[in-house]
Design a protein around this nucleic acid. Structure first.
Lengths: 347, 347
DNA sequence: ATGAAAGCGCTAACAG
DNA sequence: CTGTTAGCGCTTTCAT
């Protein structure tokens, strides 16, 4: 960091120009089109910039170029499935990926929902859009389904989505998502490789696209290995106790030796059930969760880990393409998760 | 939301003025000093604003007023003690509290640290400051100690801190912190009220101000009730296994019936130790953790919960005072945590 | 390769 | 109470 520690107002283009003995436009060019300057002039200007600790005034530049170099991210009410920690990891990654292309992340909220009313899927977006405060949005709230993306599309607001347009595969906006089915498939393969044959699935109650997707991964992996699925399947609420009860019931009925779960919460329930039955986790029976949450990490539960860093990078790539010159790229990108192997599935 | 769904460029002040049949300045007044307008003029202008879906251009306003209505928050490398989930809760609360006073939160990162070098405590701050992109900062990285706050103070950058200036109680900047000692005291009182007398403390290795603060709360509560502390204390790394081993050692040595821990991670270790000894958690022995993390919630461990929502509100209050007219408020505010009681400490 | 002029949309100061 | 004038700091023509 340059050593200037002045309470004085920040240097302007004019200050730099005077110091370097050139005109203001030349300084502007030195920053935005360095190729236009002669080498020695450029060096002189850069020296002046350095000495004065100059950074272009953000507002002025934004006013002129009509670009804020800001992407908006709405923080809704605490996410449903996207666990807290996942959100934290994702936001960090997004900030880092954005920084790499010269963007910052602007956080906002939808504001309070008037009681009795539906939460406005466009709440908060509109003002930022009209005041041209952000160049684009990153949409993550899976909660609203395509209500949100539809509204933004109609608005012609530039945005990229983290999450597939489940209800509208033909949606024209760019999106990035994690292939949950592939993740569960990976988990199932892993258990099979460990020697397990009787592998059960504990998923969510029907109605969740994400849940159905994950379940399909188990089915696919089992079918590919000609393993029995009938009777090895359970659908419950996403709570520890529901997971526990489901595991107990499965143990009584079909004696699985391994459990793949739609969430870490359910996996914790399975661990509890195994313990109640006197079965050693990771030895007598294996468990795999989903999301690689703090809970899985602390308890040593093998879990499917979403590649949130890559998701962020892909989103920012899509964003750059969207805001850059040329055609809108559209289309989606499905990223494969990895498996964080821990004691709960053997060594 | 107004029904305008135009790809057209957003309306400007001039558009509104024309539509309402007044001058631009009058529209500006209608927004910033409504009292100056006659009631009927005001109504007419507001109608025009509504019809056109007008929001003042952010950049233009910022350029003129020299205020961006943005606060910067740096997301460092994954926090040390401030658990992931706590960060998530805090950021959400901060966004909401800021919204209430017309501010948005700008996220940024310090950028990659060149290997071999110390991370720059001012990394990322400087550019935002010089480009006048944010009005102030919220500083949370406890990691850098007062390096960061010192640098910002020298820079005359407006900021408020989440976290006490441990090393410099005379620091002049506004801060808000959670009274960890009071939280642990609360936990200890709770256990005593449940009938426990032999209450152990499992804390971190010396050298952490936060750790020492929390430990002092246990001491205070024990002393106030004339309970024995000698031999009931352990200091270890912040890992599950360290907590487990510490609990086993304490059980062998002094047979505590309750454990207060400096973190939820340690509490998980204690739960494991109790189970190994055949003791029922919450029945034969009680455990309390710290941070009310997802782990504590899922496992049913009683835990000290930081009032992050209040912290955010207090920070924003301090920020408003700092940026508003009049004297800088300075001084700090210490907020008491609450206790999330769960099965691990009896009913 | 460098300099002069114009203007992005807004608000602060003053004039009417 | 309303309108006029000026300028925030920058980039984009257009001349030189």
């Amino acid at each position: 960091m340059p050593a200037s520690e002045d309470p004085r107002p920040p240097a302007t283009l004019a200050d730099v120009a005077e110091r370097a003995g050139v005109s203001r436009q030349t300084v502007s060019n030195a920053i935005n089109n360095p190729d236009l300057l002669r080498a020695d002039t450029l060096a002189r200007v850069q020296a002046a910039i350095e000495e004065l600790g100059y950074s272009p005034n953000h507002a002025a530049r934004q006013l002129r170029t009509r670009s804020s170099r800001l992407v908006g991210l709405r923080l809704g009410p605490a996410q449903e499935f996207t666990a807290n920690m996942a959100m934290d990891r994702f936001v960090r990654s997004l900030v880092e990926a954005s920084r790499a292309v010269g963007y910052h992340v602007l956080l906002f909220s939808g504001g309070p929902t008037p009681k009795g009313e539906q939460p406005d899927p466009l709440g908060g977006y509109d003002d930022l859009l009209r005041s041209t405060a952000v160049d684009a949005f990153v949409v993550t709230d899976t909660y609203f389904g395509n209500l949100q993306t539809d509204a933004l599309t109609r608005r012609r607001a530039p945005f990229v989505a983290f999450g597939r347009p489940w209800d509208d595969p033909a949606a024209a906006h760019p999106w990035v998502d994690v292939d949950g089915a592939a993740g569960v498939e990976l988990a199932t393969e892993h258990l099979h490789a460990q020697g397990h044959q009787r592998i059960a699935w504990i998923g969510w109650l029907p109605g969740s696209r994400i849940g159905e997707d994950r379940r399909s991964g188990w089915h696919r992996a089992m079918a590919a290995r000609s393993l029995v699925t009938a009777g090895f399947e359970s659908a419950v609420d996403d709570t520890v106790d529901a997971g526990r009860l489901a595991a107990l019931a499965l143990l009584d009925a079909v004696r699985p030796t391994a459990f793949v779960c739609a969430s870490d919460t359910l996996a914790v329930g399975v661990v509890r059930a195994l313990r109640e039955r006197g079965l050693r986790v990771g030895v007598d029976a294996a468990v795999v969760g989903f999301d690689d949450s703090q809970v899985a990490q602390v308890l040593g539960i093998t879990s499917v880990r979403q590649p949130l860093e890559s998701v962020a990078v892909s989103l920012v790539e899509a964003l750059s393409a969207l805001l850059g010159p040329g055609e809108a790229p559209a289309g989606g990108r499905l990223l494969p998760p990895t498996l964080a192997v821990r004691e709960s599935s053997g060594t």
